[in-house]
Amino acid sequence: MTSSTTIGSNGTTVSPLMNDTMSNNSSTNSTNSATGSTSSSSSSSASNTTGAGLQSTFLQLLVTQLQNQDPTNPMDSSQMTSQLAEINTVTGISQLNTSLSSLSTQLNAGQTSQAALLIGQKVLAPGNSLSITSGTETSFGVQLGAAASDMQVNVVNSAGQIVNTIDLGAQPAGVVPVSWEPVDSSGNPLPTGTYTITATGTVNGVAGTGTTLTTATVESVVQGTNGAPSLALSTGSTVPLTSVAAVL
């Protein structure tokens, strides 16, 4: 047996069955709402860790602000719009950095393949230690950043004495290869050994120096600190691929 409940003074009645149904629906909706909020919150926190997630959240905040503002006294949304533009800029820069990093990796891989072709080849690379075999012609080079009106190369022995000065005369900017029969200033053959060379002269009207280049054989290719390939030379030194001045 059921009884009715009277609502208001006009005699409207509601049955207990309807009351129970409304209560159950209200309880169910509250539970679903809470569950949905928890799920939405978890999903939102996961997606907000990326630039795209921040942008989406910012748009939601902007739309919510516009929907809930007082039509007679609207809020200034220019600052939010400006911040949204900044987020777009940061996201774009991040994507550009990723693309450039990928491109750099590909370029380094291509350079490594090209450098491998130099294994066993003789090259001119920065250095000042010159190995001389008595009676055998040797080669080296000088690299100039600007044209020189006069350039000389001093050859120094292990005792620190200048045993010869090679006059190269006027030379243009760039790499100047030199083939030289190892003799002293009197024309006598120099003994076999290791010598040091320095390049001095006149550049743009003032005293200047040049970068000395020595001959070495490429033994292997190694990866440099920045990922670019470097060459391990027979002289025991390792130089970046970009520093090789000439292939002999």
Rank of each mutant, 00 (worst) to 15 (best):
T5M: 12
S9I: 11
S9A: 13
G11T: 05
N24I: 09
S26I: 12
T28R: 07
S33T: 12
S33M: 02
T35M: 08
T35Y: 10
S37T: 12
S41N: 12
S43H: 06
N48Y: 09
N48T: 08
A52S: 15
Q55S: 14
S56N: 12
T57Q: 14
Q60I: 08
Q60W: 13
L62K: 12
T64P: 04
T64Y: 10
L66G: 10
Q67R: 09
Q67T: 09
P74M: 03
M75Q: 13
D76W: 03
D76C: 01
M80K: 00
S82I: 01
I87E: 02
N88R: 13
N88D: 15
N97Y: 10
L100Y: 15
S102T: 15
T105Q: 14
Q106L: 11
L107C: 03
L107S: 12
N108L: 03
Q114E: 14
Q114W: 06
A115I: 02
A116R: 07
G120F: 03
Q121S: 15
G127P: 09
N128S: 15
S129F: 04
T133S: 15
S134R: 02
G135P: 02
S139M: 09
Q143E: 15
Q143G: 04
L144A: 02
G145E: 01
G145H: 02
A148R: 00
S149L: 04
V153P: 05
N154F: 05
S158W: 03
V163Q: 11
I166P: 07
A170V: 07
Q171T: 09
G174V: 05
E181D: 14
V183E: 11
S185I: 08
T194D: 12
T194W: 00
T196F: 07
T200A: 14
G205F: 05
G205Y: 08
V206W: 09
T209V: 13
G210R: 04
T215C: 06
T215L: 13
V218F: 07
V221T: 08
V221D: 08
V222D: 14
Q223V: 13
G224A: 10
G224F: 12
N226W: 10
A228D: 15
P229F: 15
P229W: 11
S234A: 00
T235R: 01
T235F: 05
S237C: 00
T242L: 08
V244A: 05
A245E: 15
